[in-house]
Amino acid sequence: MLIPPAGSGPWYWHLLAGQLRDRGHDVVAVDLPCADDSAGLTEYADAAVRAIGDRTDLVVVAQSFGAFTGPLVCDRVDAELLVLLTPMVPSPGESPGEWWENTGYAHARQVQAEREGWTPEQDGDPGVIFFHELPPPLVEEATANARDQSGTPFGRPWPLGAWPEVPTRALLCRGDRFFPIDFLRRLVSDRLGVTPDEMDGGHPVALSRPRELADRLEEIRREVLGVARATPTRRR
C-alpha cells in the first residue's frame, strides 16, 4: 500500500509500483481525496482502507504528508510493517498545520539555505527544491499530474492517542532539499525513538530513483519480517 505526499495521486508512484511488481508484489497506490475540502485525515484513512480491501501481508509505505495517514491505516488493518518515507512524523493531538512550527522546520530550512548559499528565489523554486534530480520530460509529467491539496486536513488534530502496534521504520533521503536530512534525523529519533535508514536522492525519490527505492524497501522488509518472508507470492 503506497500513500502519496500532499497534492499527489497514484501517478506519483507509477515508476516505483512497476519495480515492486517486477519483484512479485501486489501494489496498491491509494487515490486520496486530497482536493476535497470536506475530507480530513479520517477520510484519507477511509480511502486507503477501502483500497486495501481483503489484502493481507501488508507493508504500508507513506511519504511526507502521507505519514499522517499511514499510522491511521495501520491502526485499522493488520499491517506487518509501516515504512515512513521522508516523513512528517506526527505526534498525538498535533495537526499537520501545527507540525511545521512544533518541529522547528523554518529554522532547519534557513540553516540549509545558508549552508547551500541559496537566494530566497531559489529556496522557493520547485526546480531547485523538488525536481533537481528529474529530467525535464519527467518534471513536465509531474507538474501535469499534480493535484490541488485542500487545507482541511492541516487544520485537524491527528486523532491517534499513541502510535499503532506495528513495526515502524523511517527511510530518509540524503539529498532531500525540502526536508533537510539533519532535521529529519532528529525528528525521527525524538518522535519514534529509532535510527532512520537512509539512501541517496531528493524528496520525490519515487520518481528520481525508483529502482534504488524498491531495493531499499525490500531490504527493510527482509530485515523486519525475516528471511522466511523474503520471497513474496503474487496475490491470486
Rank of each mutant, 00 (worst) to 15 (best):
3 I>S: 08
5 P>I: 00
5 P>N: 06
8 S>M: 12
11 W>Q: 00
20 L>T: 02
21 R>F: 01
22 D>V: 01
23 R>N: 03
24 G>Y: 00
28 V>Q: 00
29 A>L: 04
30 V>P: 00
30 V>G: 07
31 D>C: 02
31 D>F: 02
32 L>I: 07
33 P>S: 11
36 D>Y: 11
37 D>E: 15
38 S>F: 04
38 S>I: 04
43 E>F: 08
44 Y>S: 06
44 Y>A: 13
47 A>D: 10
47 A>R: 03
49 V>Q: 06
57 D>I: 02
58 L>D: 01
58 L>R: 00
64 S>D: 07
64 S>L: 01
65 F>G: 01
65 F>H: 10
66 G>N: 09
67 A>I: 05
68 F>E: 07
74 C>N: 04
74 C>E: 03
75 D>T: 02
75 D>F: 01
77 V>H: 10
81 L>E: 08
83 V>T: 11
85 L>Y: 12
85 L>R: 04
88 M>L: 10
89 V>I: 15
91 S>E: 14
94 E>G: 08
95 S>L: 04
98 E>M: 04
102 N>S: 14
113 A>I: 03
116 E>S: 02
118 W>I: 09
121 E>L: 09
125 D>V: 13
127 G>R: 13
129 I>Q: 05
130 F>N: 07
131 F>K: 10
133 E>Y: 09
134 L>P: 02
134 L>W: 05
139 V>N: 00
142 A>M: 14
143 T>Q: 14
144 A>L: 08
145 N>F: 13
146 A>Q: 15
149 Q>G: 04
150 S>A: 14
153 P>N: 15
154 F>K: 06
154 F>D: 11
159 P>H: 10
160 L>Y: 06
160 L>F: 13
160 L>D: 03
162 A>F: 07
162 A>D: 11
163 W>F: 12
163 W>R: 15
163 W>V: 10
164 P>H: 12
164 P>K: 02
165 E>K: 11
167 P>N: 10
167 P>W: 09
168 T>I: 12
170 A>L: 03
170 A>R: 02
171 L>T: 08
177 R>W: 07
177 R>C: 05
184 L>F: 04
184 L>V: 11
185 R>A: 10
193 G>H: 11
198 E>R: 07
200 D>Y: 00
201 G>S: 08
201 G>E: 01
202 G>I: 02
203 H>C: 03
205 V>P: 00
205 V>Q: 00
206 A>T: 01
210 P>N: 08
212 E>I: 01
213 L>T: 04
214 A>W: 08
214 A>K: 10
215 D>K: 04
215 D>L: 03
218 E>A: 15
219 E>V: 09
220 I>F: 13
221 R>F: 06
221 R>C: 05
224 V>M: 01
227 V>D: 13
231 T>P: 00
232 P>D: 03
233 T>C: 09
234 R>A: 05
234 R>K: 10
234 R>P: 09
236 R>S: 13
236 R>A: 13
